[in-house]
Amino acid sequence: MDKKTLSWSMHVLLLLVAVFFAFLLSLSVGEVSIPFRDMFSVLSDKDSMEYGVLSYIRIPRTLLGFAVGGGLSLSGAILQGIYRNPLVEPYTLGISGGASLGITFAIVAGLHLANALFLPLAGFIGALATIFLVYALSTRRGMLEINRMLLIGVMISFISSSLMMFLMSVTSAENIHGIVFWTMGSLNESNNAMIGLVVILSVACLLVSYIFVMPLNALRLGEENARHLGVDSGTTIRILFILTSLLTGACISVAGIIGFVGLVIPHIVQLWVGSDYRIKLIASFLSGSVFLILCDVAARTIIAPNELPIGVITGIIGGIVFIVLLSRSEKHSKFVQR
């Protein structure tokens, strides 16, 4: 095994250990505290209250954190790669705007009262509609134009948020509360089937993304250079865009808007492991999972027994960490250039 393979394996191993401990922490902390050492005995005693807390509340919630954190971070890493723009994240492309609009519409129309499942469904349809719009409007003469796509994504975000404001201004206070609450994001999802779906989708997308790992590596040199190396840049970008959009759409529909994970985590991971996608994809996924699980723990404990919206935590922590790293890496890169 050469040096690179060894170092990559160590990184993955380290992250898996981190995921494990984040899981343990997330399962143990809360209104009912369950110490680490009791975790396994609790899980074998199906009649205890702790078992109920774990299996009905904390395990699904932690799994959702794992899937959404990993999914958003993976999407961010891939999108930053295909757009070759470090500021792109799943939300820049209008996907969250579309999902929010879908949800707002569902709440205003009262669909959520009929069946709770209509809410994520509406979010997902909104996300899909945006993806389709962005994709269609950015395709000219059969070619997908990357910069155009970015601008159209941003514009669609603006339009959807304006439409959302409009809907909010004509609806009842109760509905506004529901909309705002959803917008802030939460891992509190009671439908296990939905959680299972997001987990499966996240892991599946991680696996599928590895089919395109070398084309992604080549795309670091630009679309045209990648093509000169024999990579079908257009097809790669197309498939990856659709893949990440579906994943993001699903994550947002279930967990609401959780910002910064898709933007900040891939950056931090790149500073740590380098820009080779063979390690960056899995490292981004696992780091995103750890980050979101830990943020959720913070959201649950800071003002316990009440709960902070998780989007608030990720925004504050992510933003600060990002600024600190950016100012540090700038010094670093100047030093290197000299």
């Binding site: 070398m214 590596n217 670091r220 190396l229 024999g230 820009s275 080779d276």
Partner: peptide
Amino acid sequence: SQFTEVADITVEEYVLMGRMP
């Protein structure tokens, strides 16, 4: 090309990309 893309990638990795095809 006229301009080599400035990517955050080591020289060795960059040269190795030539084996892509």
